[in-house]
Design a binder for these strands. Sequence first.
RNA 1: CGGGGUGUGGCGCAGUCCGGUAGCGCGCCUGCUUUGGGAGCAGGAGGUCCCGGGUUCGAAUCCCGGCGCCCCGACCA
Length: 482
Amino acid sequence: MAEAKALTPRATDFSAWYNELIARAQLADYSPVRGCMVIRPNGYAIWEQMQRALDQMFKDTGHQNAYFPLFIPQSFLSREAEHIEGFAPELAVVTHGGGKELEEPLVIRPTSETIIYSMYAKWIQSYRDLPVLINQWANVVRWEMRTRLFLRTTEFLWQEGHTAHATESEAEEETLRMLGVYRTFMEEWMAMPVVTGRKTDSERFAGALRTYSCEALMQDNKALQAGTSHNLGQNFSRAFEVTFQTASGDLDHVWNTSWGVSTRLVGALIMAHGDDAGLICPPRLAQYQVVIVPIYRSDEERATVLDTAERTRKELAAAGIRVHLDARDGMKPGAKYYEWEGRGVPMRLEIGPRDVASGTAVLARRTGGKKESLALAGLGPALVAAMEAMQREMLEGARARREANSLRGATKDQFLARLESGGGFIYAGFCGRGECEAEIKEQTKATIRVLPDAEFRSPQVPDTCMWCGGPSVTEAVWARAY
RNA sequence: CGGGGUGUGGCGCAGUCCGGUAGCGCGCCUGCUUUGGGAGCAGGAGGUCCCGGGUUCGAAUCCCGGCGCCCCGACCA
């Protein structure tokens, strides 16, 4: 019976473990429509926490939220040649409305560059109107062939920032600033270390000049692209005639950026931190940071224990902790432990008759270690400190795991061997030729995740291409990826 | 769209070969006893057996035709 209640172990079947965890923690469910998912309250709560943190970071960097429509005239997509080419196969198209066939089909946005820059064309006249710094929280639709809950679904939620600038260097600065914001969010909130860098042309966003991304390593040693930031150059401003008059009176096209992260981050969180007992949510993102489980036998015990538990709950809430008292009757404490562990709650407080008598509570950390008895007096600050420590340790642990699963300066043989023996990030020299990149992808299914930013580069960058032996122009990070 | 699998109470399955009118586990409801790591007992609710046709006295089961879903390959945050 115990077996039936446990998740498939991560080590046995990572993908089964992932799916079962989501079902068990009630994060999401499959929808009647193929490839779509229903985000259940427990899953949505995580997304809300992410939104809250990111939204504040966007505001702090000068951005405002706005909302653009779901429907885009089909002709808009084809204005930017590379863009339409990139998205054509995965578009959902509306051909009928109000019982009639539409004169022009409407595309359901796969992303909003076209509709947004068509509006910017109206709003921007002068360099005094720049920069325009707008973000929107929205759903988008991409008709994917193979889907997985959170990681790739036909419809997903995300934010997309779209900015317009007077110069290329300002646009580049913005692109990198937002990449940095993502990195900070992933490290500081998700406790998930990432490698940042530039994408190769083959992995570049359709219509962008340059694409940068944050790449995270999951516990099965596959890479996950967790966030992207694009310098769009003047590709869209030319297509949509977004022009402005410069201080010297010339007419110029604006320089655009766009950047986004999606509900995929929930999947990243699961795969970065989950264990065989379920999700492990870092304290800063947890809907409930602390759950109190009362323990009692008789009705009298129940009354006194619940009284103490409720007073403790109020105290912790007053200390700014997101706390929940699980007072459900007719459920054994052990069953509650398993349930909250599955949902990833960082801290559990057990309060029973013995604790009431001694003015203590038992603390269990989701990340493991011995249970600990803490005095009820001063519990708030103690838990805040414990959570800060957990947040830090989770990041450090994940970073250590990533480094342990990164191979630097790989030769071709080492590269091939590593892919077979577990994967992870593989750093090696790269000649920069698309032919090499494509051949590697075809033969090994490994792709260049990024050309890493300076701080992630190896101390000694290889001078030959790992694959063809030609001169290396840069170091690249390869991995098999989601 | 190719290759493989599978459709039976909410979920997971048995029953199909060899036709006889549907069962098990979990979950759910009620009651009592329980509660410091997934409770026990008793009673109970719940099923067009994917759909359509055919064979037969009789079809979850046999035959024909559809459809859905899952896994593997070509696309992708």
